[in-house]
Design a protein around this nucleic acid. Structure first.
Length: 869
RNA sequence: GCCCCCGUAGCCCAAUCGGCAGAGGCAGACGACUUAAAAUCGUCCAAGUCUGGGUUCGAAUCCCAGCGGGGGCACCA
């Protein structure tokens, strides 16, 4: 990065100052060095005093993963989270604002493998570095509650949580096709596979592999996870609610049972369009589903061979290829037939990879006339297509618009769309009226869906049903640096949960273990650790060698902050009643689905188990955008990284924090090329000089001060709280700049530095600046004659009499155009204002000889006169 | 393909309920201070709100269509 001229100059000023010890010059480095130890001693952000009677607020910033030193993303989240934590303290709340380390996970293990070191050492070294940076950055954390998810004191309770879920059937093992990362040699959750089919960690193309893995049954909670989003409306960003809704992806429809010739049990399929059942012309099953293998086994050897070839072909194709939308349809006929329950028709059964094994029942009824995918398949294999919904039929009684030209024959009446999907290649997916459908004929799509479900239910061949895009949460990881799963496998294959009094199961030392990815967990190589007697009968048994996804840690860590050292329980329900749920959560939008969905799920599980009394973990959410550079995401490979340490050294902590707050709405990305830490530093110096210049004593009567400046100060006091609560931090900063400018003006060219209003303004500036620039604010506070800490000062009440403006400008509009401006009393009546406006010479002139037909008066701001010629 | 968000000075961004388009900053120009420069202080500067319709006394704001940008989901039946 280029050396900025101002930073250079500042360096200059700093050098000069260190020689002359000139404390009349703003020097961020000196101020930081001065206050950090004072705060360390004072610990103003402790929350553990049981006698504290202030109302409580829980403000939580997403905890960092210690992969190195802090980066610019951290600088943003902890700056913005701290604005809110500090704000609520000024409002008289006892604010719980804890911090910890999300310290289990793959990067530590990969770094350890690369360098031949211990993941534990690497992790805790990084934590030490981040902690040092975090303390310099002056986020107002209660350090007494610091936690590390990689400490046994923490992960013991992951194991406890797992056991509670296991008991309830919410943790289970199944053999299934999973996402496999061939580089990291581990399975991944669906949520960790990027839209392009690559791993969000290694970037490798994810492949499918059939493995027995542990799952959390999040799908049992799909409805609640979806429906409870309504409660969060207005408190969470609409974008995140929308993303979670898309991710859960509820589809409403019906299960339909099809008898299979030569098979005892029928096969169920899920459909959102049971109304089109009369249009079903074939059935398709997923080639990798057990059902396909079973059906083809009853077929001819020739068909079996073709199917095997196809299956191999399908499994070779990568996730990325499979997901490309405009692929040619492929498939094989299985030589078997299903029977349509409504009309007894024989439907040939095909296997094709456009049907997914793990959605619905892994089989679909194909209605090519009304489903694009089925139509593409039918056209590729020349299968029959039957139209059962007339999408040209008028539904609402409205008829097509006929223009005059059509009536006199000079224009042609547009013909109706032909109902021929085979010819057009486009399925008729829209609204319409049912045809060729026996008892459904004439019904609209929606009525037909209802009617068909009733018919199926009456016949016992189907029922209303729902399906979700969401899959169960795969939590097993074949890696070392994570929470061991508290299950022991007996020789006969039974799963034995580890008794709770034997927790925690400590992670063995990595010494002597081969951490290199090899497809099975490195823990399997720790013979002493893995081989244990069965807790039931003492026979030889083996520990489960997999570790848990680290998203398990972060799904409940907000509760552990309530009593992080308690070794008798995961969290104290009494403390949870006091503090939880989190009142304000702050973090990056990249966690909109993963972490936030998991935490919501686990909270509901804990509620059902009776451990908490709430069902949503985070009452309000602020999702800040990313810090980018020149329009692009920062990354090592692109070489466009901005380094936290460099920026802080160059501009100072306060300038960086202020820049984050001032850049724009917090949800927007901050392009570091568009913002000016130099400008922020200039403003801070300017604010600081105001405090330096104040000459009146603290006892001075504010009332005696310059009324114009006092009005600016009190307007700020009145407006800033709602702005902060609406997350409009950039506007608050702008308003502070305005206040400082107004104060400077009074000092230099008005009443002067001794004016009481100058002191009042300076004190308010110091207090409000504490939200964004705590070092500068504290130094100003001291210069103004107060003891630390300004962070504990209460927000002053605005003087209502100063908020009333002496006069306002009323606008006079004539036919929508502004014609005059009048200075009027803010209390002027509508009648008086209208009279003034009618007398306005400019208004009279522009009305001319036209007639006034209407006058709208919005006292005291506006009069709108409407005329007619 | 489905869903969501956003287009305001050269740039980043403001504009409670539909009521004077501008709060703040960056960049730029000029001036004061200085032997000079930096810092500092001051003054100035620009858009009529992406385009086209509509509703309204009045639209950046609401509605419709389009253009441009961004995001989520996606062979999910």
């Amino acid at each position: 990065m280029n050396e900025s001229p101002v930073a250079h100059d500042h360096q200059h000023a700093h050098d000069a100052e260190s020689v002359e010890h000139d404390d009349d010059v703003y020097d961020f480095a000196a101020i930081q060095a001065k206050w950090q130890p004072v705060w360390e001693e004072l610990a103003p952000f402790r929350t553990s005093d049981p006698a504290d009677t202030r109302p409580r607020k829980y403000v939580l910033d997403m905890f960092p993963y210690p992969s190195g030193d802090l980066h610019m993303g951290h600088a943003e989240v902890y700056a913005l989270g701290d604005v809110l934590a500090r704000y609520w303290r000024h409002q008289g709340f006892n604010v719980l604002h804890p911090i910890g380390w999300d310290s289990f996970g793959l990067p530590a293990e990969n770094a350890a493998i690369k360098r031949g070191i211990d993941p534990r050492g690497w992790t805790y070294d990084n934590i030490a570095q981040q902690k040092k940076s975090m303390k310099l950055y002056a986020a107002s954390f209660d350090w007494d509650r610091e936690l590390h998810t990689s400490d046994p004191e923490f992960y013991k309770w992951n194991q406890w949580l797992f056991l509670q879920m296991y008991k309830k059937g919410l943790a289970y093992r199944k053999d299934s096709w999973v996402n496999w990362d061939p580089v990291d040699q581990t399975v991944l959750a669906n949520e960790q596979v990027l839209p392009d089919g690559t791993s969000d960690r290694s970037g490798a193309v994810v492949v499918k592999k059939k493995l027995t893995q542990w799952y959390f049954k999040i799908t049992d909670y799909a409805d609640r996870l979806l429906d409870d989003l309504n409660q969060l409306e207005g408190s969470w960003p609409a974008k995140v609610l929308n993303m979670q809704r898309n991710w859960i992806g509820r589809s409403i429809g019906a299960d339909v049972d099809f008898a299979i010739e030569g098979r005892e049990k029928p096969v169920s399929v899920f459909t959102t369009r049971p109304d089109t059942l009369y249009g079903a012309t074939f059935m398709v099953v997923a080639p990798d589903a057990d059902l396909a293998a079973e059906l083809v086994a009853g077929s001819t050897p020739e068909i079996q061979e073709r199917f095997q070839e196809y299956l191999v072909h399908v499994q070779k194709s990568t996730e990325m290829e499979r997901q490309s939308t405009d692929r040619e349809k492929t498939g094989v006929f299985l030589g078997r037939y299903a029977v349509n329950p409504v009309n007894g028709e024989r439907l040939p059964i095909w296997a094709a990879d456009y049907v997914l094994a793990d959605y619905g029942h892994g089989a679909v009824m194909a209605v090519p006339a009304h489903d694009q995918r089925d139509l593409d398949f039918a056209r590729a294999f020349d299968l029959p297509v039957r139209v059962v919904v007339d999408t040209n039929a008028p539904l609402t009684g409205t008829i097509p618009v006929i223009t005059e030209g059509m009536l006199d024959g000079s224009e042609e009446i547009p013909p109706l769309e032909p109902l021929d999907p085979v010819a057009t290649g486009t399925a008729l997916a829209g609204e319409g009226r049912l045809i060729n459908s026996g008892p459904l004929d004439g019904l609209s799509k929606n009525s037909a869906i209802k009617r068909m479900i009733e018919l199926l239910e009456a016949n016992g061949t189907g029922r209303a049903s729902k399906n979700y895009r969401l899959r169960d949460w795969l939590i097993s990881r074949q890696r070392y640096w994570g929470t061991p799963i508290p299950i022991i496998h007996a020789e006969d294959g039974t799963e034995v949960p580890v008794p709770e009094d034997q927790l925690p199961i400590l992670l063995p030392s990595s010494e002597g273990l081969d951490l290199k990815p090899k497809g099975t967990s490195p823990l399997g190589g720790a013979a002493d650790w893995v081989n244990v007697p069965s807790p039931i009968d003492g026979t030889p048994a083996r520990r489960d060698a997999d570790t848990m996804d680290t998203f398990v840690d972060s799904s409940w860590y907000f509760l552990r902050f309530l009593n992080p050292t308690d070794d008798t329980q995961a969290f104290d329900p009494k403390e949870a009643d006091k503090w939880a749920p989190v009142d304000q959560y702050v973090g990056g939008v990249e966690h909109a689905i993963l972490h936030l969905l998991y935490a919501r799920f686990i909270t509901k599980v804990l509620f059902d188990l009776g451990h908490v009394t709430f069902t949503e973990p985070f009452s309000a959410l602020l999702n800040q955008g990313m810090v980018i550079l020149d329009g692009a995401k920062m990354s090592k490979s692109k070489g466009n990284l901005v380094y936290f340490t460099e920026e802080v050294e160059r501009h100072g902590v306060d300038a960086i924090r202020l820049t984050m707050a001032f850049a724009g709405p917090p949800e927007d990305d901050i392009d570091w090329a568009d913002v000016s830490p130099v400008g922020s530093a200039k403003f801070l110096a300017r604010a600081w000089r105001v405090a330096r210049d104040v000459t009146s004593p603290p006892e001075v009567e504010w009332k005696t001060g310059d009324p114009a400046l006092r009005r600016v100060t009190h307007r700020f006091l009145a407006d800033a709280p709602s702005l902060v609560e609406a997350f409009k931090f950039n506007v608050v900063v702008a308003r502070l700049m305005e206040l400082v400018n107004a104060t400077r003006k009074v000092i230099d060219s008005g009443a002067g530095a001794a004016d009481a209003a100058v002191r009042e303004a300076a004190e308010v500036t110091a207090m409000a600046l504490n939200l964004f620039a705590p070092y500068t604010a504290e130094d100003m506070w001291q210069r103004l004659g107060y003891e630390p800490s300004v962070a504990l000062a209460l927000w002053r009440k605005p003087d209502q009499t100063l908020l009333v403006e002496e006069s306002v400008t009323a606008v006079v509009q004539v036919d929508g155009k502004v014609r005059d401006r009048l200075d009027v009393s803010p209390k002027i009546s509508a009648e008086d204002l209208e009279a003034l406006a009618r007398e306005s010479r400019a208004a009279v002139r522009s009305i001319g000889d036209r007639q006034i037909v209407n006058v709208i008066v919005r006292a005291p701001r506006l009069v709108s006169i409407v005329t007619r010629a």
